[in-house]
Amino acid sequence: MFVDRNITEVTIMDVDKKPVLFIILAVVTILAGTLATTFIPLFMGTASPSRENIKFYTALELEGRDIYIREGCNNCHTQMVRPLKFETARYGDYSTLADSAIDRPHLWGSKRTGPDLARVGRKYPAAWHVIHMKSPQSMYPKSNMPPYAWLADRDLNTKYTEAKMKTLGYPYTAADLRALEGKTEMDAIIAYLLRLGNELR
C-alpha cells in the first residue's frame, strides 16, 4: 500500500535499498552544514578575539560563576546586550566578542525573565546585591525571582578550585586560593556579579 507507481523512476543509486550507503550519505549531508557553520569557524579566528586586554577570573569570581551555573541563573538572565538602541539605553554597551572570550561555557542565555546582567557589575554595589539576593521581594515587592538567602549560610567548597583554575588556564597565586577561606557561596556569586561588565583591563 505504500508503493506508488513511480517509485522505481525516482530511486537514485538504490539508496533506499542499501542501509549502509544510506547512513554514509546521511552523515555526509549532515556534516556539510555542521562543518561549514560550526566547526570550520572554530579555526578561522573571527570568533576568537585576542585575550590581551581581558581580565581573567579570580578564584572567587570563578567559584561564583559556577554557583550561577549551578543555580541555573542563565534560565532567566541573559548576558548579551544586542547592538540596538533600546538595549544599550537599558543595559549599557553592547556585548563584544572580548566580553566572553575566556568563558567556558558561555552564559549568553536565551530568555529574559529577569533583566540582562552583562553590565550589572557597573550598576550596583555589593551591599545592594546582598539584600537583593536574600530577598528580591524586599526591594521589588512584585519581583518573581526566587530568594537565595541560603547561599549566605553555605561555606564555599574550595576542594576543586585549584583544579578548575588550572583546567581553564587562569593565572592564580597561593594567596588567591587562601583568600577563599571563610567565604560563603553568597560572597562568591556577588564577586562574580560585580565583575560582569568589567571584563577589560
Binding site: 560550526t38 572570550a101 567556558r104
Partner: peptide, 23 residues
Amino acid sequence: VPVSLFKSYSVYAGANDANVQWW
C-alpha cells in the same frame, strides 16, 4: 574537560561555545 565527577568545562569558549551550543 572534567574537573571532578560532577563538574566539567566546555572545550569551546565564548562565541564559539554559543555557536556550537545552538548548532
